[in-house]
Design a protein around this nucleic acid. Structure first.
Ligand SMILES: NC(=O)c1ccc[n+]([C@@H]2O[C@H](COP(=O)([O-])OP(=O)(O)OC[C@H]3O[C@@H](n4cnc5c(N)ncnc54)[C@H](O)[C@@H]3O)[C@@H](O)[C@H]2O)c1
Ligand SMILES: NC(=O)c1ccc[n+]([C@@H]2O[C@H](COP(=O)([O-])OP(=O)(O)OC[C@H]3O[C@@H](n4cnc5c(N)ncnc54)[C@H](O)[C@@H]3O)[C@@H](O)[C@H]2O)c1
Lengths: 246, 246
DNA sequence: CCGAGCTTGTGCACGCGTTCTCAAAGTGTG
DNA sequence: CACACTTTGAGAACGCGTGCACAAGCTCGG
């Protein structure tokens, strides 16, 4: 398949815009969400191994490195286009480039963290984000005692200045690390300030309008899921094969 | 759902996995994984609202509180048994009890954290875990400068004492917050010491033997997924309504 | 005791994701 | 060029999860 061109680059025409089909400059087909979630795994696997000196990598090898099924790797990559060569494998450099383009890793994303408590500080200090183009540029908190405090080379900004600072830095991605009670309000303010992607650590149901993405990470829930299966095992069940990739 | 599953452990042990039925003392039927992941949501929703004075709650109301579909709530709860009353709803207290029993929240789980860096410290200081019966009892790190250091009312223990301390405290659940490079080795040591559930924050593929559960939380991947959809939106696509329960 | 009004529990259809499988398409050797 | 070997790409089958729709079952007022 894959007949109608990946060739036709450039911004997609208005005619192509459909509700359920994702037509973009980079890829012509809809990429399943499960695949999107695995692309970072492939990216990381390709980056980490010294495989880059080798020109090509097979789906089998990549599957092994990423910890998934080989058929899945092939199907996932086929959504990006036919980048492989039969009998040979995938060109490592090219694949890396395509994946990072697809994930938006070729550009920098300014990020804001709201709620500079235990977790927010840990995130602010984390060096791993920058490597993927996620630059934490703004730290926001409501606690007056914290405002102005220096963390790394950033100074904590008051929640009152949220709108201004978020706009100034052109923030598209916000990280929410406030207590649960403040989550919805802060999310609303972020959205109002132009943020369209939110990563939420607060254990609270929290809704955002159409056109804004929100992903939740709830560590307590993760523990409870582990506890569930732990309990089963103790009472004679078998372990669940499950493992999540964010 | 999100369901971003990756099989793990031994090579190609996929086929036989699904076969086994989960029959335990507590519930007669197999509970789907997606349901297990939502039970904590229901639990939290029930605990948070003042709904407890009200004797019963309808699936519709609970769905609203938990941010899911009402039919889903009913189906999920039906896996636990027929605890509802038609025309009335679910008895709140009883439902809470059943869910917490199913999730193993009626008992205490001693937890160990390995890797007391930025993230490990945040987790160690977090008060939210204890409320669900997850008691962080052991902090472990390899850095000699950190060993003996006091965090909260716990003292950091050397990685050399991992086996002994984990056994002494009867730890079943371990949290892995070391750098990626050390993840597999630490996981192996935890498993060797008797840990059968691991929550892994290190961005690394990491395998555990059959009979051990492992869940991964990779924050960088979450950001990359957000970035993917953010990029699409910019180029004219529609936003994905997606939000993870997990 | 009956009927109106709710709410649960579940059968069912549908869509998504996974994985098996194999033809197609490449490489390399003699 | 023929042939053996490798590896991709995709068709197809299957299983899981979701959500609609509705009968079964409960309460309550009269
Ligand atoms: N720390 C962890 O390991 C951990 C684990 C799981 C979940 N969480 C969740 O992450 C969130 C943060 O946890 P934490 O331990 O960092 O909490 P924390 O109390 O240490 O920090 C919360 C911070 O948010 C700030 N804040 C409160 N209201 C605010 C508002 N309206 N606007 C801006 N800032 C505001 C507070 O001043 C504080 O600095 C919580 O929702 C918590 O449940 C944390
Ligand atoms: N901090 C964050 O916000 C964040 C975000 C995403 C992912 N992560 C991941 O979480 C993990 C921890 O992150 P961090 O920021 O806390 O890192 P960190 O470097 O601050 O802490 C790591 C700790 O692990 C200890 N350690 C190293 N090797 C060890 C071993 N073999 N046994 C026991 N302890 C060992 C180190 O002494 C250090 O104290 C990393 O894998 C990181 O990629 C962290």
């Amino acid at each position: 398949m894959h007949k109608l061109g990946t060739l036709q680059a450039g911004p997609c025409s208005a005619a192509e815009r459909r509700k359920d089909i994702w037509v973009t400059a980079s890829s012509r087909r809809r990429i399943p969400e499960a695949t999107v979630a695995r692309l970072p795994l492939y990216y990381r696997a390709l980056m980490e191994t010294g495989e880059r000196q080798v020109a090509t990598i097979s789906s089998e090898r990549l599957a092994e490195l990423a910890g998934v099924n080989a058929a899945k790797v092939r199907k996932d990559l086929s959504y990006l286009g036919s980048y492989g060569t039969r009998g040979v494998g995938y060109d490592v450099e090219y694949l890396l480039h395509e994946i990072s383009r697809e994930l938006g890793l070729t550009r920098d994303w300014p990020v804001a963290i709201v709620g500079i408590g235990n977790l927010g500080r840990a995130l602010a200090n984390y060096r791993g984000f920058g490597a993927r183009g996620f630059r934490v540029e703004v730290l926001i908190d409501a606690d007056p005692a914290l405002v102005g405090h220096q963390i790394g080379d950033l100074s904590v900004v008051s929640i009152d200045d949220l709108d201004r600072v978020v706009r100034e830095h052109n923030i598209a991605i916000g990280i929410l690390a406030t207590p649960a009670g403040a989550a919805q309000e802060v999310a609303d303010r972020l959205v109002a300030a132009g943020v369209t992607s939110i990563l939420n650590f607060a254990p609270a149901v929290c809704s955002v309008p159409e056109g804004v993405s929100m992903r939740k990470v709830d560590l307590a829930i993760e523990l409870q899921i582990l506890s569930f299966y732990q309990l089963r095992r103790g009472t004679g069940g078998t372990a669940p094969p499950r493992e999540r990739t964010g």
